[in-house]
């Protein structure tokens, strides 16, 4: 209940925070018409996730307007855009985390492979085992490092024996690049780690259930540059086995880690292109204005 309310508040706070950012130049940009449909290459062949005409509402307030997008297999796609443009909302509808918000409604066709995400028959627990999520603020459970990583596999009964579980934990921590730092203190608390380590622990926790897609909601915004660099490296390695969608405020980060970049503007998907194209030759005026820093 309260999670919902707080999230709702947070989203509203985001909207409020966005307002002062719309400066004089932004106002002039507002005259720029939205494109009829998303420019660039929103669709790919054989997508992992196929999203069509997605609309998201908070009560009567429409946060996402008719977004259609494909997420390719083993690709890293970054979602960028000014604050309050709906990137996080969009991301959260991909593993139905928006379900926790009472007033939030998602419409449209969202598919993971052939599976309809909003099929009433689909068990959301199963979906979240396939689509994992890493949050903005590192949120390890106040349990031991081992238990943090083992939590997901235990929930889903992925390991029958202690030995198997140990192996999953070790592999996940290795994949998250954390193994060497924590192998001697697996049973000390996860909250005692540094911010960057905590975030990698959260990533290890997410990949411990072997999801197919990993959603990352500004995973580095609470971290220092060195920790950020480590996570970015990690994203690069993870893309070999996982499909990754990452929301970021840092355009450099988007440029460094992603294969494709989607630019959101006030709830609309303006442009999707190969990352290089977006940052060198953006097709749409709004995209250009944003990446050149005329508004943020």
């Amino acid at each position: 209940m309260d999670t919902a309310r707080e999230l709702d508040n947070r989203n509203r706070a985001d909207d409020d925070a966005a307002k002062p950012l719309i400066d004089v130049e932004e106002r002039s940009m507002q005259d720029t018409p939205y494109p009829e449909k998303t420019v660039g290459k929103p669709f790919v062949d054989a997508p992992k996730m196929k999203l069509r005409h997605v609309n998201v509402f908070y009560a009567d307030n429409q946060a996402i307007h008719d977004v259609s997008l494909d997420i390719g297999k083993n690709e890293v796609i970054s979602l960028i855009g000014p604050s309050g443009c709906g990137k996080s909302t969009f991301l959260r509808s991909l593993n139905r985390m928006n379900d926790t918000i009472d007033i939030c409604r998602v419409k449209g066709e969202l598919h993971l492979d052939e599976q309809d995400l909003y099929d009433p028959k689909l068990d959301v627990v199963e979906l979240r085992a396939r689509v994992g999520m890493v949050f903005q603020k590192p949120n390890p459970f106040p349990k031991s490092i081992y238990d943090n990583v083992a939590y997901g596999p235990r929930l889903h009964g992925l390991a029958d024996k202690k030995y198997d579980l140990d192996e999953i934990v070790e592999n996940s921590l290795r994949s998250a690049g954390l193994w060497n730092e924590v192998k001697d203190r697996l049973h000390s608390s996860g909250t005692g780690l540094s911010g960057g380590q905590q975030q990698r622990l959260c990533i290890a926790r997410t990949i411990a259930v072997s999801p197919e897609v990993v959603l990352m909601d500004e995973p580095c915004s609470a971290l220092d540059p060195i920790a950020t660099a480590k996570i970015e490296e990690l994203i690069d390695e993870l893309s070999e086995s996982y499909t990754i969608a990452i929301v970021t405020h840092s355009m450099q980060q988007a440029a460094r880690v992603s294969h494709r970049t989607a630019y959101f503007h006030l709830g609309r998907l303006i442009e999707v292109n190969d990352t290089e194209t977006v940052f060198t030759k953006p097709e749409h005026e709004l995209t250009e204005a944003y990446i050149t820093g005329r508004f943020g």
């Binding site: 309260d2 199963e126 994992g132 949050f135 949120n139 459970f141 997410t206 259930v209």
Partner: peptide, 27 residues
């Protein structure tokens, strides 16, 4: 006391596929 439990912990568990009941009991 329940209100002081940070929502981030609940979200983390939910995102791993814990049911509401499990979130409450485990966290």
């Amino acid at each position: 006391a329940i209100k002081t439990v940070p929502p981030s912990v609940r979200e983390g568990a939910l995102a791993l596929g814990a049911s509401k009941m499990q979130v409450v009991l485990h966290h």
